[in-house]
Simulated scan of single mutants.
Amino acid sequence: MNTLHPLAPHHLPSFVTAPGQTDVLFVAMAIFVLLAVVCIGVFYFKLHALPEHMAHRGQKIQFEIVAVLALIALFTHNHAFWIAALLLALVPLPDFTTPLTSMARSLSRMARHDAMSGEPVAPGAEEPDEPIPAATPPAVAGDAAPAEAGSAEKAGA
């Protein structure tokens, strides 16, 4: 019996369903809202991880600081941390470790030379057991030995 109530309008909208039937519009809107919430959440997390993705190409310490700032912003809902992470990810930090590593490597190579003779010491060679004697103090001008004085005159002549 598909008869309408006498007081009902004769032209009902298409979204009105008969009693006992499935409301198709409600089901469609429920699925749409569920998908919209999931898509907005994914977009939010992708946007929130943007500073980390940008800092990934930089230095490790910069990446770690940006990641911590982004996590703090996520859990505190304080957008200032996210903005700070984004700005830090955009600014390239100067590389201090490469020159310092180069200096340390050069000093290590210099330290491998024998202190007395200036000859390189083999990497596996043992250190000498006797201590290296301290440098002699410089001679005063009047204390020069006669042999040294004679050699100085020959060099000047």
Score class of each variant (00 low, 15 high):
91 V>Q: 05
18 A>V: 06
3 T>W: 04
43 F>Q: 09
95 D>P: 05
87 L>T: 03
57 R>I: 02
17 T>K: 10
142 G>L: 02
75 F>N: 02
13 P>V: 09
126 E>A: 10
111 A>K: 15
18 A>I: 04
41 G>I: 05
123 P>Q: 06
41 G>D: 07
23 D>Q: 09
110 M>A: 13
29 M>G: 00
29 M>L: 06
71 L>Q: 00
32 F>A: 13
31 I>Y: 02
139 A>I: 07
64 E>Y: 06
28 A>H: 03
21 Q>S: 14
116 M>Q: 11
98 T>V: 14
36 A>Y: 00
23 D>H: 12
4 L>H: 03
54 M>E: 06
125 A>M: 14
139 A>H: 10
111 A>F: 08
40 I>S: 09
43 F>Y: 13
140 V>Q: 04
13 P>L: 08
107 L>K: 08
145 A>I: 06
59 Q>S: 10
152 A>R: 13
49 A>Y: 10
80 A>S: 00
147 A>N: 04
46 K>C: 08
19 P>L: 10
101 T>V: 11
30 A>T: 14
4 L>V: 04
11 H>F: 06
99 P>T: 15
7 L>N: 07
70 A>G: 03
9 P>K: 04
27 V>K: 08
11 H>S: 09
62 Q>E: 07
143 D>G: 05
113 H>R: 08
47 L>Y: 11
102 S>F: 15
31 I>W: 03
138 P>Y: 05
10 H>C: 01
5 H>Y: 05
10 H>Q: 11
141 A>S: 09
61 I>D: 03
16 V>Q: 08
109 R>W: 09
144 A>Y: 13
152 A>M: 08
75 F>Y: 07
101 T>Q: 08
99 P>D: 14
137 P>F: 03
127 E>S: 15
54 M>H: 00
61 I>S: 14
93 L>R: 15
97 T>N: 13
36 A>Q: 01
147 A>W: 10
62 Q>V: 01
78 N>M: 03
40 I>L: 11
32 F>K: 02
79 H>T: 07
22 T>L: 14
138 P>N: 04
106 S>E: 13
58 G>T: 02
109 R>S: 10
150 G>C: 04
156 G>S: 15
24 V>A: 15
102 S>W: 15
41 G>P: 14
63 F>I: 00
56 H>T: 02
75 F>I: 09
99 P>F: 10
110 M>W: 10
143 D>E: 11
63 F>P: 00
14 S>G: 14
136 T>D: 12
96 F>E: 11
25 L>A: 12
22 T>E: 05
149 A>S: 14
157 A>G: 15
127 E>C: 09
81 F>I: 00
37 V>L: 08
155 A>F: 10
34 L>C: 12
90 L>W: 05
81 F>V: 01
152 A>W: 14
69 L>C: 02
29 M>A: 01
33 V>S: 04
152 A>I: 14
82 W>T: 01
49 A>G: 05
52 E>A: 13
144 A>W: 10
115 A>H: 05
74 L>R: 03
